[in-house]
Amino acid sequence: MTNPPNNAAAGRASAAGPVITCQQLTKRFGDFVAVNGISFEVAAGEIFGFLGANGAGKTTAMRMLCGLLGPTEGAATVAGCDVFREPERIKQHIGYMSQKFSLYEDLTVRENIRFYGGVYGLKTAAIREKTTALLQRLGLAAERDTLVGSLPLGWKQKLAFSVALLHEPAVIFLDEPTGGVDPITRRQFWDLIYEAAARGVTIFITTHYMDEAEYCDRVSIMVDGRIDALDTPAGLKRQFGVASMDEVFLHLARGAKNVE
């Protein structure tokens, strides 16, 4: 391809087919195989649960898909961008949120939105417009000049999620997004996830809450760098003859050898 398509076109093109594809994606650190030939596809608008025990290789796989870590071998595309050749372009088409990395506590709500809008290359007018819409949708208009550090955790999480969607990415990666909040707030966060998915945003999510695994369209479970199971929650429960995702997870992860 002599003229690479512009970013928006790449984003649109990917919306038709799978938004994430992985074939035999592998990462080795010296002798240690952190991710061992994983293959899967995620469709546009799908809520894809990415589960595994601590040390199973989830974070490494996620870092590769986000363009933060070069794979050793295999192939993968995210929003039509190749993870080997175009890691920088990937970042323009994805959103990312985790408990560890989210908003700046010492900036106000509005400053955070403006900062992230700028990082993602949005024009000033677009940032202004999106700021108003976002504050309104979250009911945070009155808190626009409040320091994020003084907001309740549940609100930080909702704001971080919305900010990660500011540049209208094709995919959002959520790394244990709901830790620490009360059960009502946790479910309200899932309402935001459902709404984003209904708009066509692909959701790639890790969680330690097994009830949240049930809310995903499909769930993959990594064990020792491999994907040992991938199906709908109902399919997985049928496959392992158990009543809950908790039991599916325990069944698979108990056999793990890598305890990082």
Partner: peptide, 10 residues
Amino acid sequence: TTGVDAVSRQ
């Protein structure tokens, strides 16, 4: 058990 996987929690 915060942030610990389901197997370790159990």
